[in-house]
Write a protein that binds this DNA or RNA. Structure first.
Length: 866
RNA sequence: GCCGAAGUGGCGGAACAGGCAGACGCGCGCGACUCAAAAUCGCGUUCCCUCGGGAGUGUGGGUUCGAUUCCCUCCUUCGGCACCA
């Protein structure tokens, strides 16, 4: 808090009208869980906490305008959260649907996808792994704004946050393609690789896909049913583990590939997710890693349709399969190979394949075969060469090989046979872009045009079109918890879900509930609360008993600060016009894919509903790092590693604590707490105090002393100003420390009676004011200046005073430091060169040799190259 | 696996449109004051050294007169995403 408070104070001194508000995002799981643990009513616990926090913040000297305080659990606040819900509902941006959702068994509530973290898919709050439940829940249509949320052009936000959001939204460009089942049902898929359509040798549906039942043949019914049941039982963690062995079942049904009429089997497998795309994929095992593993495991055909970019092919020659002289002729033809124990391992460039096939065919002994794989796929038999370019030719080749070699008799596909040869493995599968092969009229289309051309053709044929898919999901906002804003919906047997009219808001959260956990939503168990009347017909109806995710409350709180007690609208429009959008917003990086996406969504939705204006809610964002406990773990009461500012404040005073919080680590990086340095900052504050309050008789300072002092002063002012602008708070304090050291020197040289001294004290206190507001104010008064220092303008750098009149010229020989020479600031290049060469150290090192070259950086450095 | 950030003294950290590495502070050492200690003040504090210097910003290479800074390789730590078709 304090560094941003200091910056707000700095901006005020810069002449800005600064709104620096404070409020409490008071609803939510953490508060409710903490209250339950202590067996205190969540409301009592929350408001006691708020009071404690207010006290703490005030003791730190924050400049918050408390008249603008907003508390999201106050009815006068959540009335407007409910108003926003209604608006979203009326505009079709809030909807209710039954779906498998993430459920935290410990918090007894559903969670948004953003609130489920890590590999084990745990609850963001309590770290319990979540499970899936089928529930009817309320969602906000964040996906409507997926494309717009990717546009950061109006934002001065850190690259890091933009990247996190971009990845979270997860745009992929591709095409939708209309496959059909054998009996004529449409079976649409999404693919990013329309260029591989001719290699689609089977399809895979998510187990939950609606067509599964219809596709399943009677023979497969039992297996399919069992697999679907098992998939539903499994948690996401089990299902989504990437390294898991592929599982799946054949439905017995077939689909038709629209590009070539090929009849391909339809499988179900849990590696296809119902929640992404259409819940169905075309499988191109030759160019998709997952499909490849699946096909290999289940013996499904694999057909390469994209040439690898390097054009490399391979051939492995079994001992005894070639007539003698084979290796010699290869060598003579410039075809490189490795010979290991009579086995030949041959790697071919694109141009060598034809020549090689010819030679191999001539040298092949009867009863054997040889193959070329990679960029080209050919099987050389003694009676001719078979090209593997279709599912049919593969079948023929496989049959032939099985006849010739009993050891491959049980192989189900050619690829399975080849995969057994480790030498081949790196050329059998790839997912790069390349020239299309084995793809009918598209064969030969180069990799950089393939996707575009195929997509255009699909559209022409009416079987597909270009399409963009996002990973972002709609925001699940229902929570089966007590401590939140009630969702203002009433269910009427006649009229269904009806929004509570705005003039009847807020739907008050009752105090008299059983808030101790029962595994059920507390509002549901309240004897009377949920019973009400339908706003449409007046008949008996029941209220929605779920409450809203607190991220809903925090999505618009910046607007409530404008006018926290305004009772006609979420905010006073005049205030909105004056202040919005938020100019500077600071917060932790942990908000990147939650709060900061939600609030952007909220703003854009609000804009489209005619409530807010402009493209974005917050113009400039700067991330602060997290201060960890001394044990480098996140501070938490349960770990017992929390550093309470109160203790530090009572021991060192607020100003010292403020300054130390700015000084001890980089604000944007955060660090484990380390209290040992605070003594240094305390010493600094005391030394300022001593210097200004302990009288020292003025002496007779030299002009040099005064010039040096003023130079340091204005150089410091320049740096401090810059560092405030760029949020580099740690160097603000160190620059002030440096200047103080200089001031002590000047004092000892008798400077205290001078006008320069008065100037230094004046500016020094102004620079301190944002950092240590109390000490600065008191010393300001002591200097006899008018109240208050915090209303003073920020000082202006006197560039002339800040300029150096002497510079330290660095003299290097071959880039190594050899000497430093003091020269006047405006020195000419020629004089610089002379001064450097005249140096004793240089003369000694040169020892008579003549420099080959002299590099000159004016005003800084001379490098003599010998 | 993919994406991103970061590696500088005993510690927190400075410096980077390429130009004196280690500002400022902590800690530590020595000294002054003191009977003594604390506080305060002063000096010193990257490492090695034969006191001339030499090495040094995670590793190895490259570009350059010159690299903590730019490029490539690798290592480590942290964060995010992850069967997303």
């Amino acid at each position: 808090m304090t560094p941003s408070d200091a910056r707000a104070r700095y901006m005020r001194m810069r002449g800005f009208n600064v709104l620096f508000p404070m409020g409490f995002d008071a609803f939510g799981l953490p508060a409710e869980n903490a209250a339950i643990r202590r067996r205190i009513h969540p409301k009592d616990w929350t408001y006691a906490n708020i009071e404690r926090m207010r006290h703490q913040l005030k003791s730190m000297g924050a400049m918050f305008d408390w008249r603008r305080e907003a508390v999201s659990s106050d009815p006068e606040y959540y009335r407007w959260s409910q108003f926003y819900f209604n608006q979203l509902y009326h505009h079709g941006l809030a909807y209710r649907k039954m779906s498998p959702v993430d459920w935290c068994p410990n918090c007894n509530t559903t969670l948004a996808r953003e609130q489920v973290w890590g590999e084990d898919r745990h609850c963001e709050r309590c770290e319990t792994p979540v499970i899936k439940k089928d529930l009817e829940q309320w969602f906000f249509r964040t996906t409507n704004y997926a494309a717009e949320l990717l546009d950061f052009s109006n934002l001065d936000w850190p690259e890091r946050v933009r990247t996190l959001q971009t990845n979270w939204i997860g745009r992929s460009e591709g095409a939708s393609v209309a496959f059909t089942t054998e009996v004529g049902d449409a079976l649409e898929i999404f693919t990013t690789r329309p260029d591989t359509l001719w290699g689609a040798t089977f399809m895979v549906l998510a187990p939950e896909h609606p067509l599964v039942a219809k596709l399943t043949s009677p023979e497969q019914a039992q297996l399919v049913e069992a697999y679907v049941q098992q998939a539903l039982r499994q948690s996401d963690i089990q299902r989504e583990a990437a390294d898991k062995d592929k599982t799946g079942v054949f439905t017995g049904g077939y689909a038709i590939n629209p590009v070539n009429g090929q009849r391909i089997p339809v499988w179900i497998a849990d590696y296809v997710l119902m929640t992404y795309g259409t819940g169905a994929i075309m499988a191109v095992p030759a160019h998709d890693e997952r499909d490849f593993a699946f096909a290999l495991k289940f013996g499904l055909p694999i057909l390469p349709v994209i040439e690898p970019p390097d054009g490399r092919s391979k051939s492995y020659v079994v001992p005894g399969s070639m007539r003698s002289g084979f290796a010699d002729i290869l060598q003579a033809q410039g075809i490189s190979f490795e010979l290991v124990e009579d086995r030949l391992y041959i790697t071919l460039s694109a141009s060598q394949v034809a020549k090689y096939v010819d030679i191999a065919h001539r040298y092949l002994k009867p009863g054997y075969w040889n193959e070329v794989v990679g960029a080209q796929w050919m099987f050389i038999f003694d009676d001719g060469v078979q090209v593997w370019d279709s599912v049919e030719s593969e079948a023929r080749i496989l049959l032939r090989c099985r006849e010739l070699e009993p050891r491959v008799a049980d192989r189900r596909t050619v690829m399975e046979m080849l995969w057994n040869c480790p030498f081949y493995q790196d050329v059998l599968y790839h997912h790069e872009y390349g020239t299309m092969i084995h793809s009918g009229e598209f064969t030969g289309t180069p990799g950089d045009q393939a996707r575009l051309q195929v997509t255009a053709w699909l559209a022409e044929q009416g079987v597909g079109q270009g399409m963009v898919n996002y990973r972002l999901r709609d925001w699940l906002i229902s929570r089966q918890r007590y401590w939140g804003a009630p969702i203002p919906i009433v269910y009427c047997p006649e009229h269904g879900a009806v929004a509570v009219p705005d003039d009847q808001l807020p739907v008050l959260l009752p105090d008299d509930v059983e808030w101790l956990p029962t595994g059920e939503s507390p509002l549901k168990l309240h004897p009377t609360w949920k019973h009400t009347t339908c706003p449409v017909c007046g008949g008996p109806a029941v209220r929605e008993t779920d409450t809203m995710d607190t991220f809903m409350c925090s999505s618009w709180y910046h607007l409530r600060y404008l006018s926290p007690h305004y009772d006609r609208y979420p905010f006073d429009p005049q205030e909105y016009d004056y202040w919005m959008p938020v100019d500077t917003y600071t917060g932790g990086i942990e908000h990147a894919t939650m709060h900061l996406i939600y609030t952007r969504f909220f703003h854009k939705a609000g804009r489209d509903m005619g409530i807010m204006r402009g493209p974005e809610p917050m113009t400039q964002l700067r991330n602060q790092g997290i201060i960890l406990g001394e044990d480098s773990e996140k501070m938490s009461k349960s770990r017992g590693n929390v550093i309470a500012p109160d203790d530090l404040v009572s021991r060192y005073g607020a100003d010292t604590v403020r300054a130390y919080l700015m000084f001890f680590a980089r604000w944007d990086m955060g660090a484990p707490w380390n209290g040992s340095g605070i003594e240094g900052v305390a010493r600094w504050v005391r030394r300022v105090w001593t210097l200004m309050l302990e009288p020292v008789a003025p002496g007779d300072p030299s002009p040099d002393t005064l010039r040096t002092l003023r130079r340091k002063l204005h150089q410091t002012l320049r740096q401090v100003t810059h560092d405030f602008e760029t949020f580099e708070f740690n160097t603000i304090v160190s620059a002030l420390m440096e200047l103080l050291n200089e001031m002590y020197k000047a004092r000892d040289q008798g400077a205290t009676g001078s006008s320069a001294w008065a100037e230094v004290l004046d500016i020094y206190l102004r620079m301190m004011a944002p950092v240590t507001p109390h000490v600065a104010e008191e010393l300001w008064q002591h200097l006899g200046k008018s109240y208050s220092i915090h209303n003073q303008p920020w000082p202006i750098v006197d560039e002339e005073a800040a300029a150096e009149d002497q510079i330290t010229l660095v003299v290097q020989i071959n880039g190594k430091l050899r000497d430093r020479v003091m020269v006047p600031a405006g020195i000419s290049d020629e004089d610089t060169r002379q001064a450097a060469l005249a140096s004793d150290a240089v003369q000694k090192h040169l020892a008579g040799t003549v420099p080959r070259k002299v590099i000159l950086v004016p005003g800084k450095l001379v490098n003599i190259v010998v």
